[in-house]
């Protein structure tokens, strides 16, 4: 299985390649990708240099252009597709049907992947993307069990890529409106979930209170690990009591089920975290590279001590083994 690693900056990309990534995914410094954070991402020159660096070392670069274009502003997304192709990206990761159609017609030889933002979660949906746009790989949403992934892989001609570590989005990705509801901005359109412009942290007697727009998301006690200020990981008071309504602050770590994912026919394993540092990327990529080497050698897969990297310092295998509450 291929190891697909994140990079938010050229330095992070170099670290990912040196740490053992088969491919690195990244995006441009604008709203065309779903990690449009301040100070993050690549300008055109940086992308060309990064792709050369990766290719010289046998690694691929996949460019995420995975937000949904705004009406009247298509040129920004079309230019991103053109510039990524001209920079010799190994694949484009797209979510929007119109953009997939544009890329297929304009650059028929370019390899296309379906982003997780397309929420393609069943064989019919995936077949549509392969038949209409010739996509070669689909990144599956983080809401499927291993058995469902195995069934999908068996029924489709398309390669499948699944997340194995990092931020755990528990929603139908590309369709979630929680961030829009609170801030007017979303990962789907502006490339930002819970945008930093709307986040506030307040220290109150040792507690940290996180706020998003007009909403209090959480209050962490003095000795309690913290999490991101997203509505889906918020702790709320309801008529049924106070607690986490959707999901707790927790990260995905699927290292223990790598053998099951291999048996399910998965082609590529994806690490989330383009917004994270070089230290995170080096630690996580090296850990999963070692796990894959152990798997290939028929050795037991060691679960590395990555909990300190996890949101809330807690890990889960998420929907891969989800039992509904």
């Amino acid at each position: 299985m291929e190891l697909i690693c994140p990079a938010g900056t050229p330095a992070a990309l170099r670290v990912a390649v040196e740490a053992g990534a088969d491919a690195v995914y990244c995006g441009f410094r604008d709203e065309t990708n779903a990690r449009n954070f301040p100070g993050l991402n690549f300008n055109r020159d940086e992308l060309r240099t990064a792709i050369r660096f990766a290719h010289q070392r046998g690694a691929k670069v996949l460019v995420a252009i995975n937000t949904f274009p705004r009406a009247g502003a298509l040129s920004l997304w079309h230019e991103a597709v053109r510039d990524a192709v001209e920079a010799e990206a190994d694949a484009l990761i797209l979510a929007d049907i119109g953009l997939l159609d544009y890329a297929r017609r304009r650059y028929p030889k370019q390899r296309l992947h379906v982003s997780v933002q397309a929420a393609a979660a069943n064989p019919d949906a995936i077949r549509f993307y392969t038949e209409m746009f010739g996509v070669r790989r689909v990144v599956l949403p983080r809401v499927l069990t291993v058995q469902e992934i195995a069934a999908i892989t068996k029924e489709t001609v398309c390669e499948t890529e699944v997340f194995v570590f990092g931020g755990l989005c528990v929603m139908a990705e590309g369709r979630c409106s929680l961030s829009s509801y609170a801030t007017g901005k979303s990962p789907n359109m502006q490339g930002v979930c819970s945008p930093a412009s709307h986040v506030k942290y307040e220290a109150r007697n040792g507690r940290i209170v996180s706020r998003l727009g007009d909403f209090t998301i959480n209050a962490f006690e003095k000795d309690e690990p913290a999490g991101y200020p997203t509505l889906c990981k918020g702790r709320f008071a309801t008529e049924h009591g106070a607690g986490y309504i959707f999901e707790e602050p927790v990260s995905l770590d699927a290292a223990v089920i790598l053998p099951a994912l291999r048996d399910a026919g998965v082609t590529a394993l994806k690490i989330e975290g383009r917004q994270r540092s070089r230290a995170y990327i080096e630690g996580v990529v090296r850990s999963f590279r070692a796990a894959l080497e152990a798997l290939d050698a028929g050795m037991p897969v060691e679960t590395a001590a990555l909990a300190r990297m996890a949101e809330g310092q807690t890990s889960t295998v998420g929907a891969y083994r989800k039992t509904w509450r």
């Binding site: 940290i208 309690e224 690990p225 913290a226 602050p249 994270r276 540092s277 230290a279 300190r308 310092q313």
Partner: peptide
């Protein structure tokens, strides 16, 4: 120095 991850340091308080 790039030895530590900012988000991890935020999670650990």
């Amino acid at each position: 120095d790039g030895d530590l991850d900012g988000d991890a340091l935020f999670f650990s308080r």
